[in-house]
Design a protein around this nucleic acid. Structure first.
Length: 646
RNA sequence: GCUGUUGUAGCUCAGGGGUAGAGCACUUCCUUGGUAAGGAAGAGGUCGAGAGUUCAAUUCUCUUCAACAGCUCCA
């Protein structure tokens, strides 16, 4: 007999070799029907695997993340089975579960697959799922595994098997389909009730752009149709919040093919929003000892040779600008750090001067590959809310933590609560792409890891994500469709100070090297605003709204009063516009609602007679009448407290 | 950059080998209306660009440019 400890602490006894599914059955039949997989001693495995020793057991169902991903992984196998049935000879790459659903990379040998084909594959999957095929696990020797896929003629699987250790290889079979797979899987295909293949895309084999591009089919499955419908509705809703769509509708920004790809242009309303954000951060920075600086948009090529950026990015960047004079080359500024290093050198520094904090909203230009461009989140010209802190080694941690505070202040003020803090370190394998000594890197990595830990940030560590000159702490936020974007970033850098030979005179009257901290709480104004738009669905907090109040006279008779009210609001620093068209009040309200203007003032003869305003709140409706002073106080209170728009 | 999809009026989209249509927006006129669309008339497009096939191309073919999805990349 073995002891099985359940999540509630209860211990039950079973014969050795019992399966999680058996245990579920012993608890209740209803539970057994829902079990997708099991977590045994912390490891997720098939609910049908025998358990032979004492263990802790958690039964995984659809409500568990691991339960979902097990089902989606099994769904990928089901899709592969359907694909083999419909497209004999198809070769399979990998087919994992992802955050929302699964995909399988396939090689159709020159054939293409269309959206309509996906519907056929879906239908085949539904048909196969009804066979209630069991997912059965089998351990195989490397030789047998190689033989199986050699006969099948699937070179991708052979490549995968060659990288595996003999004795660790397992196959899973359901229906007529067998795949190389570590598992785990759901007990049988009947759990998969609702299926949607969402899209087709290309993906390089093993993520390497030198390799062949396979066809990737994405899909998602659910245990019932209702949940699938809800999911699809959610996606539709999310698309309505897309910043590219809202940016156009709310007249915030635009692009022009003639101006160039990835070069956003800000329309008046968007520019106003940008300026509000800029002023907000400037004020916070002035309060914490930053000094504003301004540097030019171009820099001599030698500046970037010194910094190392030219060697690293010169070939993949905008080409240098040449002058009529021979031999002079300038580059569009792709970052502000080298300029700031030279600013630091403008005067000798004492240890008493440090830290020096140079801040600049610096517009930079980077040649991003065509296919990477994406709305405002990935562009070729953008403005960083950049600053460089030059400090003594003993000040690094304190300064770093103050920057974390500033980033969190910015995020909190805008209601960004679901970020992840990512510690981006060097790749463990390939170190050739980084500059500087191991010693400096270790110092920098240590400073970041310790600071983040002391601030209690929930962090994830990613290797290979560091900048070439130093590690980073990145604040990642998701857009409407769940794509992750890096917003705030803080980087510790021991390398550029060395390359630029930055110095300060210490208390010992000797020269020392300062440490540099790069930081940008927004990341870039463009990307930050993109994510902000998607977060609030275009309903900006009042303090940021380009137009805060729309004044809606009921008829021409109230025009004069409307203008008087507008003048008073302007004097109170409230951004208001009058809708003086000869339209009915219902239409004016509808359009102001759709434009997501926070407040509407409906003004007719009644209001004019009593010197009042009838206030309407966007998406909330009529708030009744009040005096101008009351309305101004209402607005002011909301602005000062930076209340989020509900 | 790679794979796939798309490109028709300012916007959202329909159409289709015989040189184009709707709704909204826009202009003018009527209407002066009290909390999510008042009415009428008008104007607006070399159907992304180039080449080919054809008596004839916006429609078919090829090339190219751009957008979108994903991959790769991101100082």
């Amino acid at each position: 007999m073995i002891n099985i400890t359940l999540p509630d602490g209860a211990v039950r006894q079973y014969d050795a070799g019992v399966t999680a599914l058996d245990i579920a059955k012993s608890i209740s039949e209803g539970l057994a029907r829902k079990v997708l997989a099991a977590k045994v001693n912390g490891e997720v495995m098939d609910a049908t695997r025998p358990i032979t020793t004492d263990a802790t057991l958690q039964l995984l169902t659809w409500t568990d993340t691991d339960g979902k991903s097990t089902m989606w992984h099994s769904s990928a196998h089901l899709m592969a089975e359907a694909l083999e049935a419909l497209y004999p000879g198809v070769k399979l790459g990998i087919g994992p579960a992802i955050e929302n659903g699964f995909y399988y990379d396939i090689d159709l040998g020159g054939r293409t697959i269309t959206e309509e084909d996906l519907r056929k594959v879906e239908a085949k999957m539904v048909e196969l799922s009804k066979h209630n095929s069991i997912y059965s696990r089998k351990e195989v020797s490397k030789a047998d595994a190689l033989q199986y896929f050699t006969e099948k003629g699937d070179e991708y699987k052979l490549e995968l098997i060659n990288d595996l250790q003999d004795g660790t290889i397992t196959f899973y079979t359901q229906g007529g389909f067998t795949d190389l797979c570590r598992g785990p899987h759901i007990p049988n295909t009947s759990f998969i009730k609702a299926i949607k293949l969402t899209n087709i895309a290309g993906a390089y084999w093993r993520g390497n752009e030198k390799n062949k591009m396979l066809t990737r089919i994405y899909g998602i499955t659910f245990p019932n149709q209702k949940e699938l419908d809800e999911y699809l509705t959610l996606i539709e809703e999310a698309k309505k919040r897309d910043h590219r769509k809202l940016g156009k509708e709310l007249e915030l920004f635009t692009f022009s093919e003639k101006v160039g790809l990835g070069l956003p242009m800000w329309l008046p309303k968007g520019a106003l929003l940008r300026e509000r954000l800029q002023r907000f951060l400037q004020e916070a920075q002035m309060a914490t000892g930053y000094l504003p600086v301004v540097t030019p948009h171009i820099g001599n090529k030698n500046l970037y040779v010194t910094s190392g950026h030219y060697e690293k990015y010169g070939q993949d960047s905008f080409r240098p600008i040449t002058t009529p004079e021979e031999g002079e080359e300038f580059m569009l500024k792709p970052m502000n750090c080298p300029h700031h290093c030279e600013l630091y050198k403008a005067s000798p520094k004492s240890y008493k001067d440090l830290p020096v904090r140079f801040a600049e909203f610096g517009t930079v230009y980077r040649y991003e590959q065509h296919g990477e461009l994406h709305g405002l989140t990935r562009v070729r010209g953008f403005t960083q809310d950049d600053a460089h802190l030059f400090c003594r080694p003993d000040q690094v941690k304190e300064e770093f933590m103050k920057v974390i505070d500033l980033v969190l202040y910015v995020f909190n003020s805008l209601g960004f609560s679901n970020y992840t803090a990512q510690v981006s370190l060097r790749s463990k394998e390939d170190r050739s792409k980084y500059i500087g000594t191991d010693e400096n890197w270790e110092l920098a990595e240590k400073a970041i890891i310790e600071s983040a830990a002391e601030k209690g940030l929930p962090t994830v560590v990613e290797y290979g994500e560091a900048a070439f000159y130093g590690p980073k702490l990145d604040f990642m936020v998701k857009d409407a469709l769940g794509r992750k974007w890096q917003l705030g970033t803080i980087q510790v850098d021991y390398n550029l100070p060395e390359r630029f030979e930055l110095e300060y005179i210490g208390a010992d009257n000797a020269k020392h090297r300062p440490v540099m901290i790069h930081r940008a709480p927004f990341g870039s104004l463009e990307r930050f605003i993109a994510v902000l738009i998607e977060h609030c669905g275009g309903k900006f907090p009042l303090w940021l709204a380009p137009t805060q109040v729309k004044i809606l006279p009921i008829s021409d008779k109230s025009q004069e009063y409307a203008e008087k009210v507008a003048a008073q609001l302007k004097a109170a620093d409230i951004r208001a516009e009058i809708d003086d068209r000869s339209e009915k009040i219902g239409k004016k309200i509808r359009e102001a609602e759709l434009a997501k203007i926070p407040y509407m003032l409906v003004l007719g003869e009644k209001e004019a007679a009593d010197n009042l305003v009838a206030v309407r709140r966007q998406s909330k409706g009529d708030l009744g009448t009040m005096t101008m002073d009351q309305f101004k106080a209402l607005v002011n209170e909301e602005v000062v407290n930076r209340k989020p728009f509900e």
